[in-house]
Write a protein that binds this DNA or RNA. Sequence first.
DNA 1: CTATTGACCTTCT
DNA 2: GAGAAGGCCAATA
Length: 111
Amino acid sequence: MSSTDFFERVWALVRMIPPGKVTTYGHIATALGAKSAARTVGWALHAAVGRDDIPAHRVVNRRGELTGRMHFATPTLMRELLLAEGVTFDGERVCLERHLWIPPLSPQTDQ
DNA sequence: CTATTGACCTTCT
DNA sequence: GAGAAGGCCAATA
């Protein structure tokens, strides 16, 4: 287990997110085993910026807000990418009721 | 090496 | 029901 193993697990989950779907930090953290590790998930995604294999724009907070849009190349890039995926937006927030995707609870044992 | 902050969430008061 | 505090992991100062 490397120190960045936690990041790799987050990236693995984000990487398996289907297009047109979005997930939340809490669900990812819970899927990794840590209920309150949502903060670390944000750090993992921050480190994921620059990796085309990791669609960090599909990861939003509990309220569907694009909290990390400011860390992208452009503050509107995140919304543009989700709109291109077919995700519906409610103002500045994503319709989690229509696009909330829940990751497998056992990412290490499942696949 | 210690302390603080950071794309947050959960739970207690 | 609303507000405040705690917790988790990693990076930066």
